[in-house]
Amino acid sequence: MTEKIKLFDTSKCTGCRSCQLACKQWNQLAAKQTRNTGTYQNPPDLQPNTYLVMRFQEMDDPKAGVKWFFRHHACMHCTDAACVKVCPSGALYYTDMKTVGLNRAICIACKECVTACPFDIPRYDDKTDKVYKCDMCESRIGNNMEPACAKACPTGALTWGDKDKLMKAAYKRAKDLGGDAKVYGDKFVDGTHLVYVLQEKTALYSALPTNPSVPLSIVLWKDVLKPLALLAAGGVLAGSFLHYIIHGPKTPDEDGANKMEGGE
């Protein structure tokens, strides 16, 4: 299957939240009562039952007056995904389309993915003792449909398609927009499968890391210590064997004085 990505263009988004609602609908996620905290941001963050949230930000701009920032916030579907690296059960996995799926039935609720993800995406629910996140509508994209969110988007801010084609479009769009506009996603974790065209500087968007990477600790843990555990134990076993056949065990001396005193 050809590699596909989901492209989100902040400049075309009107903040209508169709994508957020479509996600709830397709994944049959109930809504939760929330409190108004004086912003349009609702719900306030990702939750076990909210895989996708539209981030709303108001920015004061001396020239343009108030500016609105809208960002489609969900799993980035990393090519080198920290969550897949740490998941002990295989519940998190790469799909044929290179997106990151989640087989909740075998999740053991160790929550390692929650601490590992550089984008702070997976959410743990203590009622079900499982972890939740966007799976890019695996049941849809596996059947040649686009993700529910992209299907619902009325403005073309969200598109789903072949990686090559959409990346080209993304770079062209960033160039056309000019100013601070840039492409976000292809330069780290070996490329994400949710890619943004950001109209403003990355640092201005809330909850968006400017330079995310698979944490060093996870690379050390999984790529160095894990093989080392087997290597060290294997080395000890081999060493013991060599010791036994070359140097020999440390056997009690069998002189006459000891014979009387029992023993084996």
Partner: peptide, 12 residues
């Protein structure tokens, strides 16, 4: 994240 590293090191 770093405690996982220590736990794995201890295991080694």
């Amino acid at each position: 994240r770093w405690l996982f590293v220590l736990h794995a090191l201890g295991f080694v």
